[in-house]
């Protein structure tokens, strides 16, 4: 097994990668996305389950809906939201030209 060190060790940079204005605009948009995903997280983790007692009388394929949301529904939301987040953040990176080269 080769024992080559080909890892990227963190390098110290001399200056900022982008100018201040771009950096600030980028961070504003990134923060916006963060708050959006955080809101989805909050609703899927807590908000929807507050209504579990009301949702449970509805049965779909045998599942009481309130139970289903905690057992599967919210989990599916988490997975889909994270893949969407990755894609959206990449678009923002490219829009401001701050993606890794």
């Amino acid at each position: 097994m080769p024992l080559v060190e080909n890892a990227d060790t963190p390098q110290s940079a001399k200056g900022a990668a982008v100018d201040r204005a771009t950096g600030e605009a980028y961070w504003k948009k990134t923060s916006g996305l963060m708050w959006t995903v955080l809101a989805i997280w909050f609703v899927a983790s807590f908000g929807i389950h507050l209504f579990a007692p009301m949702l449970n009388p509805i049965h779909i394929l045998g599942f009481p809906l309130g139970f289903y949301m905690a057992a599967q529904g919210s989990l599916i939301v988490f997975v889909v939201a994270l893949f969407w987040f990755g894609k959206r953040q990449n678009e923002i990176d490219e829009e401001f030209g701050v993606q890794e080269d």
Partner: peptide, 8 residues
Amino acid sequence: RIPRGGVR
């Protein structure tokens, strides 16, 4: 905060 570049 920014993917590009190094870290000072």
